[in-house]
Design a protein around this nucleic acid. Structure first.
Length: 699
DNA sequence: GTCGCGGAAGCGGTTTGAAC
DNA sequence: GTTCAAACCGCTTCCGCGAC
C-alpha cells in the first residue's frame, strides 16, 4: 500500500508481523543468517550461533527443522517488543530489553537442554503441552539461580569434573600437585561450605585436572576456573548458556600467598538472608517470557496451543517472599558522620593540597606520580602530613626506589591495614577523605547512589553554594529515559567539603594535570598514572570501604564489618533530625542543626524524603529509644505494643523487630509519630512523640 | 467519575565473573 | 586495577479492576 508522505508514521503499523519481526534494534545482521550478531550497546557485538545440535543429531539450521528455527528466531525478536507497538520497541532503556532478551534465551536453552524429552526435533514447539509449560515454570521457580534451574549447573559441573579426573593421567595429576602444593590446600571455610558434592579428598585432583586443561585464571577472590570456558565444554546443546558465566563453587578456588584483597573483613549482609526460591518479581517476568511463545500464532508458526499457554499463565508456584534491606544501627552511622566531619576539618585541606603539590612536581618533571621516590613524596607532602605518618604515595604501588617488581605489593592483610591506619599512604588517605565527603553528602542529601557518583565538579553547586544540583536517577516510564534536573539545599559543612574537592580539581586543571574538571568524587589513579580516575559505582564503593576499614566501623557478632552503602544512608538525614530531638549528647549533630529553626528543617525533610523512607526512619528512631528503655514520650505506644505483642520488655526485643511492629502500627493507622515543637529559654526545640489516632478499644 | 487495591512491569542497586 | 556484562533483588510506579 502506498501512503501519502504525511502518513508515513503509520507505515510501521501496516507491515505484516512476519516482516516486522525480522528486525530488532539489537540485531545487527540478517534475520536469516546462521550466526546472529547482536549488541545491547556493547563495545564489541556478540554472536548467537544457531547451529545447535538437537536430540536426534540434526542441526537446528537443517532444512527439516526450519519451522522450529523460525519459531525460535521470531520468539527472540518479539520478546523485546510489547503488546501494543509493532515496530516501536518498548523502551529506550537497553537494560530492560536486555533483561527480556536474556530471559527468552533462558527459556530457549531450557527447551534445547530438555529437547530430547520433549521430542523437540520431531514435534517442534507445537508438541509442548500445558504440563510441559508448567513444568518449565515450576523448575524455574524452584531456585533463585538460573544457573541451577535451567542449566542444572551443580550436577553437570560435578559430573564434568569427575569425568575429567578419570580422563587425565594420574601421573600428571600427582606431578602437578607435587609442584603446586597450594592447589591441594582446602581452607576450613571451604570444607564446611563444600556443596559441590565432591568429597574433599578428591578436590585436589579435580583442581589439578581443571588446571591442566587451562581453566584457571586469577580473580579477586583467588584462582578460579573460568566458568564461561567450562560452559563451552559442558553445554554444547545450548544457544546462550554455553557463552555465559555461571556461579562459582568456592571449593574449586585455590590461593597463592599473594592473594588480592580490598576489604579487611567480610561485609555484613546488606539485605536479609539468602532465598531458597525465585523471587516473585523475577517469576512474573519469566512467566511473561513463556507466555510470549504465543506470538508465534500471530506468525502462523507452530506454537504451544492457546489453552496450554493460558493454563501455564494461571499456574501459581511456591515462591519466596520479599526480603528487605537491613537497617544499620544508627549509632554506627552517627559516629561515622562525626568522624567524617572531623577528618575533613583536620586533614581535608592538607591532603588535597599535598596532592596538588605532587601533581605540580610531576608536571614540572614530566613524569607520572609513580616515578617519585618515597623520600620525595615525604618532602612534597609537607611536614604536617609527614608527621602524621605519610611515607609513600600509595600502599598498592611500589615506589621506584623499591627495586624489583613484587607480585605481593599490598603485603599481608594485617600489615596493609596497619599501614592504612598509620596514615602511610597518601592516596589511601585521599580515598578515605573522598569517602568521608561521600558519606557526609550521602547522609545529608539522602539521594540515590547514582545521583551522587554522577555529580560533576564543574556544575554540582549553584553560584550561592547553598544548593546541590543533580540529575534525578529514577526516571519514570514513558519519559524516554530522560532525567529531570533537581536542586536541593545543602548543609554548609557538606558544601564546604565539596568545595575542597572542587578547589583541588581546579588547581589540577590550572597546572595542566587534568584537561578539564571531572566527576566530583574522582580520586588519583592508584596505580600511579598521571591522571584522576573518574568516580563510578566501583570507585564510590571502594572509597566507602576504605573509609570503613580506616575508621574500623564495628563488627557484627559474626565478625563481619558494616561496610556503608549509600542505599542504607538515605533514611539517616531524617533519623538525624529525630535524634536531635531526643538525645542532647550527639553534639556534632546539634552543632550542625544548631542555628536553624527545627521547624524549617523538618519541613525540608518531609518534602525531600519519600513517605516509606520517612516512616521507617521514624520507626527506627522510636524503636531504638524503646529498646534503650526511654518510654517517657511513648506511653500510649508502649501500651499498644504490649497489648498486641504481649510484652513490655522492649529492651529484650531486637530493634529490628520492634521497628517492624511500629511500622505496621503506623501503616494500619493506629499511631502517628511526629515531632512536637516548643520554645523555652534556650530557644526553639522539639521532641518526638507518638500519638494514638484511634482508641485502643476499637482493636 | 474516582478511589483504593493488588498484581505486573519498570527500573536502580549490588555483586560477581570476565575482559581489557 | 579498572571497566564491562549479566544476574539477581528490592523498591517504585503503573494500570486494570471492583466498589462506591
Amino acid at each position: 500500500m502506498q501512503l501519502p508522505p504525511e502518513l508515513d508514521f503509520l507505515a510501521p503499523f501496516l507491515v505484516e508481523a512476519s516482516e516486522a519481526y525480522r528486525y530488532a534494534s539489537w540485531l545487527l545482521n540478517d534475520f536469516d543468517a546462521e550466526v546472529w550478531e547482536y549488541s545491547f550497546g556493547y563495545k564489541k557485538p556478540k554472536n548467537l550461533d544457531w547451529r545447535v545440535q538437537l536430540g536426534d543429531g540434526s542441526l537446528l539450521t537443517d532444512a527439516k527443522n526450519r519451522n522450529l528455527l523460525l519459531g525460535f528466531k521470531y520468539y527472540l525478536t518479539s520478546c523485546t517488543r510489547d503488546d501494543s507497538g509493532y515496530l516501536q520497541e518498548t523502551n529506550e532503556v537497553q537494560g530492560q530489553q536486555l533483561q527480556r532478551f536474556c530471559h527468552a534465551c533462558h527459556i530457549l536453552d531450557y527447551l534445547l537442554i530438555n529437547g530430547k524429552r520433549y521430542r523437540l526435533a520431531k514435534y517442534g514447539l507445537e508438541g509442548l503441552t500445558a504440563g510441559n509449560l508448567i513444568e518449565i515454570l515450576e523448575t524455574l521457580a524452584d531456585t533463585p539461580l538460573i544457573a541451577e534451574s535451567v542449566y542444572n549447573w551443580r550436577e553437570r559441573l560435578r559430573n564434568y569434573c569427575l569425568e575429567l579426573v578419570e580422563a587425565t593421567s594420574p601421573i600428571a595429576l600427582a606431578e602437578l600437585i607435587q609442584a603446586m602444593p597450594q592447589i591441594a590446600e582446602i581452607s576450613d571455610e571451604q570444607r564446611v561450605e563444600n556443596n559441590l558434592g565432591i568429597a574433599c579428598e578428591l578436590i585436589p585432583k579435580v583442581r589439578a585436572a581443571l588446571y591442566l586443561k587451562g581453566f584457571y585464571h586469577k580473580q579477586v577472590g583467588g584462582n578460579q576456573p573460568n566458568t564461561t570456558q567450562l560452559s563451552q565444554e559442558i553445554y554444547l546443546e545450548t544457544l546462550w548458556g554455553k557463552n555465559q558465566p555461571k556461579v562459582m563453587y568456592d571449593i574449586l578456588i585455590y590461593n597463592d600467598d599473594s592473594s588480592q584483597f580490598d576489604r579487611e573483613f567480610p561485609g555484613a549482609p546488606v539485605t536479609s538472608g539468602a532465598r531458597e526460591k525465585m523471587r516473585d518479581s523475577a517469576y512474573v517476568t519469566y512467566r511473561r517470557a513463556v507466555y510470549q511463545l504465543g506470538v508465534l500464532h500471530e506468525l502462523e508458526l507452530p506454537a504451544p496451543r492457546e489453552e496450554a499457554l493460558i493454563k501455564a499463565e494461571k499456574f501459581q508456584p511456591d515462591l519466596s517472599t520479599i526480603g528487605r534491606f537491613r537497617t544499620l544501627p544508627s549509632e554506627i552511622v552517627f559516629t561515622g558522620l562525626r568522624q567524617a566531619i572531623e577528618f575533613h576539618l583536620d586533614h581535608g585541606q592538607e591532603l588535597t593540597r599535598a596532592f596538588c603539590r605532587i601533581a605540580l612536581e610531576c608536571r614540572k618533571r614530566k613524569v607520572s606520580p609513580s616515578a617519585l621516590t618515597a623520600s620525595e613524596v615525604q618532602q612534597l607532602v609537607g611536614p604536617k602530613l609527614a608527621a602524621l605518618g605519610v611515607s609513600k604515595l600509595c600502599l598498592a604501588m611500589n615506589s621506584v626506589n623499591n627495586g624489583a617488581y613484587q607480585s605481593n605489593i599490598k603485603g599481608t592483610k594485617e600489615s596493609y591495614f596497619e599501614s592504612l591506619r598509620a596514615n602511610n599512604g597518601l592516596y589511601e588517605l585521599l580515598g578515605v577523605y573522598v569517602g568521608c565527603v561521600q558519606l557526609t553528602v550521602g547522609i545529608l542529601m539522602a539521594r540515590r547512589v547514582s545521583e551522587l557518583y554522577e555529580l560533576n565538579a564543574k556544575d554540582c553547586l549553584d553560584e550561592t553554594e547553598g544548593w546541590l544540583l543533580f540529575r534525578n536517577a529514577k526516571s519514570t516510564r514513558h519519559l524516554f529515559g530522560m532525567r529531570r534536573r533537581e536542586a536541593r539545599p545543602i548543609e554548609p559543612i557538606a558544601a564546604d567539603m565539596i568545595k575542597t574537592l572542587i578547589r583541588m580539581q581546579k588547581v589540577l586543571r590550572r597546572i595542566g594535570y587534568i584537561p578539564k574538571l571531572q566527576k566530583l568524587f574522582s580520586v588519583p589513579n592508584f596505580k600511579g598514572a598521571a591522571k584522576l580516575t573518574d568516580s563510578s559505582a566501583y570507585v564510590y564503593n571502594r572509597n566507602l570501604d576504605l573509609y570503613c576499614d580506616y575508621f574500623e566501623t564495628p563488627l557484627t557478632a559474626k565478625g563481619e564489618r558494616h561496610y556503608f552503602r549509600q542505599h542504607q544512608m538515605r533514611r539517616f538525614f531524617a533519623m538525624l533530625f529525630f535524634y536531635c530531638g531526643s538525645f542532647a549528647k550527639l553534639d556534632t549533630l546539634q552543632w550542625m542543626l544548631g542555628h536553624t529553626d527545627p521547624k524549617h528543617v523538618y519541613r525540608y525533610i518531609t518534602e525531600s524524603t519519600d513517605g516509606a523512607v520517612l516512616a521507617s526512619a521514624k520507626a527506627q528512631a522510636v524503636a531504638e529509644q524503646l529498646h534503650q528503655g526511654n518510654y517517657e514520650n511513648f506511653m500510649e505506644l508502649t501500651q499498644l505494643l504490649k497489648e498486641r505483642y504481649g510484652t513490655e520488655k522492649f529492651t529484650l526485643i531486637s530493634t529490628h523487630d520492634l521497628e517492624d511492629q511500629i511500622v505496621e502500627l503506623m501503616q494500619e493507622g493506629w499511631v502517628e509519630i511526629e515531632p512536637e515543637f516548643f520554645s523555652d529559654h534556650e530557644g526553639n526545640k522539639f521532641k518526638i512523640v507518638a500519638r494514638l489516632k484511634r482508641a485502643p478499644e476499637a482493636a
